[in-house]
């Protein structure tokens, strides 16, 4: 293989390694609960006034 082909190959290969590492890290079952939490949180309290917990309600 030519040096250009080698560099293309090494570059692609290193990207694949990075890609696999990211997947392995985030798909580790130990992290699942923590990683998946925001998708539940965003559904909660949609209409709750943000100040209501702290200052006892911003209703007028």
């Amino acid at each position: 293989m030519s040096s250009a082909a080698w560099s293309y190959f090494l570059f692609t290969f290193s990207l694949v390694v990075v890609f696999v590492c990211i997947i392995v890290y985030y798909y580790n079952p130990r992290r699942k609960k923590e990683i998946e939490a925001p998708k539940q949180r965003m559904l909660e309290d949609d209409e709750v006034m943000p100040d209501s917990k702290r200052k006892g309600g911003a209703h007028e």
Partner: peptide, 14 residues
């Protein structure tokens, strides 16, 4: 809820 938050992480960065 969204099907998978971690899939969205992979999708986002790539």
């Amino acid at each position: 809820p969204l099907f998978s938050h971690r899939l969205s992480i992979i999708s986002f960065w790539s």
